[in-house]
Design a protein around this nucleic acid. Sequence first.
DNA 1: TAGATTGTTAATCGATTAACAATC
DNA 2: TAGATTGTTAATCGATTAACAATC
Lengths: 227, 227
Amino acid sequence: MKKTAKTSGVPEPSVRRMPDYLNYLRLLKNKGRDYVSAPYIAKDLNLDATQVAKDLAYTKATGKPRVGYNLNALIASIEEFLGLNRTDLAFLVGAGSLGEALIKYEGFGYFGLNIVAAFDTDENKIGQEIHGVKVFHIDKLRELAERLHPVLGIITTPAAPAQQVADLMVGWGIKAIWNFTPCSIKVPEKIILQNTSIYANLAVIMKKVQTLYDNPISKIEDISNTL
Amino acid sequence: MKKTAKTSGVPEPSVRRMPDYLNYLRLLKNKGRDYVSAPYIAKDLNLDATQVAKDLAYTKATGKPRVGYNLNALIASIEEFLGLNRTDLAFLVGAGSLGEALIKYEGFGYFGLNIVAAFDTDENKIGQEIHGVKVFHIDKLRELAERLHPVLGIITTPAAPAQQVADLMVGWGIKAIWNFTPCSIKVPEKIILQNTSIYANLAVIMKKVQTLYDNPISKIEDISNTL
DNA sequence: TAGATTGTTAATCGATTAACAATC
DNA sequence: TAGATTGTTAATCGATTAACAATC
């Protein structure tokens, strides 16, 4: 019953690893390296070498046996794969600290994302500039969307108004929505929806921390301390 | 070769869905409902009913055929599963806007996380209070860690100092690290490490947006507009 | 040439989905 | 009783890992 918008045949986990590779390879390039092999990358990023090779193959990158991949070509290949040549305009609704953090996120520009306007309902925030991005009243969204045709809408409001904001965005022609609220929002089938929940990550970490309490290992450590 | 710290036999995707259920069920409770079935939840959250039932079973929740689950019992069961009764102390390093956003995140308290101190190297930030959490110089981490024994360390610094911060945290007895930088950091095997990369999510969304350009659908839409 | 690495094809592993008996 | 839902067991699906031939 669940329907996940396809990411062009490439497994989503592979897509998620791409920014890691890119970040790592750019660092390596700055160190003056020219070639790099999949096993080498794998070791540094704590991944399986075969998996790295397979991921890189998705980007149409090609390497040479015994030598590896040309670093410049590989970086270009991943950038191409992720579409970083293209720059998409984005609107952000909810100019709280999370919204501010996203706007200030240095790397976004390098990842083909350009937040051009922020919106809020808080009169204190309206008119302000965050890192060069102006905050407008939400009522201006329609007008600005008609003019700029943003592709992506980012929701960083509190949970309550999330659905309303999403409806507004869809109404004014946004193609993709990135939802940072913990609320599950409904959008028409054609709209791309990506939920990013801090809580999902928190849950995983708390669950792992829990094992520290359950596990007799901590008790063993206690014992060894008394020896 | 890759080693993922086990979350006690429960599939990680299931753990990640738990906060969604919890959030949704709390909302439902506020509406005055007493019972809820897996298919009902599934419909609202856009999931498969069997999957919901299976997820809930992991929490040891039990339901009655034809009736569903008692809402209070179910909520309690998920809270128990996630360990929300326990409250863990956390230190946060990097009091920028992302750090600030996390400190202000209303929900964290409800999810068993208590950020008790923030650290930075920026003299302008030191001594300030964010939402009741004081910002200390990073040099104070040792002293405060010895006193408070935080379980979790959150890294919201820029990428460059991430590894250094992690080493510091590990040195002072932190058990789990939540890394928000795009840098892959190395920690001893015993330390729980959770990476949350905004870029991974961005990559997925950009890749999906890309299909809008590749796809002839957009062209079809253009044509229909001229009719 | 020898040997490491690519890149493909097959095997494994794990999560999701489907089927169905139990039960309220 | 009839029928919807739980909860378990089996089938499917997809990603990761392993094996190996090609090749530089």
